[in-house]
């Protein structure tokens, strides 16, 4: 039995910024480090964490049945095909939207805490009931945002709500960073975002076409394509979450082309 389970809410306010992708990849990365991890899909109205993990066809029961004592918890938990340390628990059936209350969420998480080192809660978009339910059961939070005005605004709103509910610590992940656009000042810079949100930055994730491919395949990047830029970012985030001190990537360095990179490499070798 794990005693010091960390229950982390992954939320953003705005939809489509990459909450579910982060949850899936973080889940895989933590599991790879030998930590038992449960990912709880609290976005059951539009659930797709199971799709990303390629586990859609294995779901039989949900947390709803567990709470109604129609099945045991271990029957509802779906173990990942390759990463046996990772389990998925879908919160409920998309057809029954209003059954879940904050207390139900707390009960599910209490049960999960007995078995796992990490519980990651994939929060639905918005700041309404779905978010409040998910928040009720969490201790700490990761806010995902993109370097664009609307995503930052929504993240700010969510951080305000997390603060009033005394969820600590709240950390930031800046997703879909395009180094070239940042260098040309066509995109909000990292400083712009951290200035407004005033949160410690847990990590950056570079924009990567492979993310779309991996989503469609149901295989998170961190599972098989470890060399893709985004996968490296996700792995670093998982390590930092564990308290390892890994420096942030510098988008300016990423933006300069291959030639510049090569030259820099040459220089360091020669001198």
């Amino acid at each position: 039995m794990a005693t010091d389970t960390r229950v982390i809410l992954i939320c953003s306010g705005k939809g489509g910024v990459g909450k579910t992708t982060l949850t899936a990849n973080l889940g895989i990365s933590l599991a790879r480090q030998g930590l038992t991890t449960a990912v709880l899909d609290a976005d059951f109205g539009l659930r797709n964490l199971d799709l990303l993990l390629g586990l859609e066809n294995r779901i039989v029961y949900t947390a709803q049945e567990v709470l109604e004592e129609e099945c045991r918890l271990d029957q509802a938990l779906v173990k990942h095909k390759q990463e046996s340390n990772l389990s998925l628990l879908p919160a409920g059936n998309p057809r029954m939207l209003d059954w879940l209350k904050p207390d139900d969420m707390k009960r599910i998480v209490e049960m999960l805490k007995e078995q796992f080192n990490y519980v990651l809660i994939d929060c639905p978009a918005g700041v309404e009931d779905g978010f409040k339910n998910a928040m009720a059961a969490s201790q700490e939070a990761i806010v995902v945002t993109n370097p664009e005005v609307s995503a930052v605004r929504d993240a700010d709103r969510v951080i305000g709500l997390l603060n009033t509910n005394s969820i600590k610590p709240v950390q930031l992940v800046l997703n879909r960073v395009r180094p070239k656009m940042m260098a040309n000042q066509e995109m909000l810079s990292i400083d712009d975002v951290t200035d407004i949100l005033a949160l410690p930055l847990l990590g950056l994730v570079l924009e990567d076409e492979q993310v779309i491919v991996s989503t469609n395949r149901g295989e998170p990047l961190t599972l098989n394509s470890l060399n893709s830029p985004a996968a490296k970012c996700y792995l670093n985030i998982a390590k930092r979450l564990q308290g390892e001190d890994i420096p942030l990537i510098d988008p300016a360095e990423e933006s300069s082309g291959l030639g510049a990179k090569f030259r820099r490499l040459m220089q360091t070798k020669i001198f």
Binding site: D156, G160, I196
Partner: peptide
């Protein structure tokens, strides 16, 4: 004291002193 974040609203019947940022929204 503290950041006033998007969606939050402060009202005061007298003067108002804020030690922190007032964010967009």
């Amino acid at each position: 004291q503290g950041t006033v974040r998007s969606g939050e609203y402060l009202d005061s019947p007298g003067d108002l002193l804020i030690l922190g940022d007032v964010n967009p929204g």
